[in-house]
C-alpha cells in the first residue's frame, strides 16, 4: 500500500488563481509566470484497495468533489485535465497548513465510517506554467520567490510561519 493523491479543480476558471496571477503581474512584472493553476490536493494515506478505494470515497462525499462544479483526477493524470498546455514548463508547489483542522476532521470522518484509509492530508497545489525557453532551475527559483511570503513585498502564496511548501510533487507531474 502507498498514498494515493487526487487533484480537484473548478470547471469554471479558478478565481483564486486569477487573483493571484493578477497580483503577480502587478508586483512582479518581470518574473511572473505565463500561467497559474490552482487545485485542491487530497493525499489519501494507504487506501486499502488503492485507486478503487479513493474512487469510492470521491463518489460518496460530495464535499470533496462536487460534480456539479468541480472535476478531478489522480495526480499523475493531471496533464490530461482541460487547459493544460504540453508545450509549457510546469512546476507544481504544494502549500499545506502545518496544523490543519480540515485534514484532522476528514481523517476522523473516514475512520468513523470505515472508509479503508488511514487518513487524509489536504493541501493546495499551485501549478506555475512558463513559456518554452526558460531553464528549469531559473523557473524553479522564480516559483520559490513567488510562493514563499517572507516580507510584505516578497512572495504571496504561502506564509511560512503557518504553512509548509513542498516541491517534491514535481516528480509526480
Amino acid at each position: 500500500m502507498g498514498n494515493t493523491s487526487i487533484v480537484v479543480s473548478l470547471k469554471a476558471p479558478d478565481p483564486a488563481a486569477i487573483t493571484a496571477m493578477s497580483t503577480f503581474r502587478r508586483i512582479y512584472p518581470e518574473t511572473c509566470p505565463d500561467s497559474l493553476e490552482r487545485y485542491d490536493y487530497w493525499c489519501f494515506m494507504n487506501p486499502r484497495r488503492g485507486r478503487e478505494t479513493v474512487n469510492g470515497i470521491v463518489s460518496r462525499y460530495h464535499d470533496i468533489v462536487n460534480p456539479n462544479k468541480q472535476t478531478w483526477t489522480f495526480i499523475d493524470d493531471i496533464n490530461k485535465l482541460a487547459g493544460s498546455d504540453d508545450s509549457m514548463l510546469w512546476i507544481g508547489v504544494l502549500v499545506t497548513d502545518i496544523i490543519d483542522s480540515v485534514s484532522e476532521n476528514w481523517t476522523a470522518i473516514f475512520r468513523r465510517n470505515c472508509c479503508e484509509v488511514e487518513g487524509v492530508l489536504c493541501s493546495v497545489l499551485w501549478r506555475f506554467g512558463f513559456a518554452p525557453g526558460i531553464a528549469f532551475d531559473t523557473a524553479r527559483n522564480r516559483v520559490l520567490d513567488l510562493t514563499v511570503s517572507t516580507y510584505r513585498d516578497h512572495g504571496l502564496l504561502a506564509n511560512p510561519v503557518s504553512q509548509k511548501i513542498d516541491l517534491s510533487v514535481l516528480s509526480l507531474i
Partner: peptide
Amino acid sequence: VESGLVPGWERGRIESALAANHINGRSG
C-alpha cells in the same frame, strides 16, 4: 499580519500568521 506590521520586530518582515481555526471536531 500579512503586511508585517505586527508584531513588526523587523520592518516589513512577516513574523506571525493568522492561521485557520484549530478546534477539535470542527473546522471553518
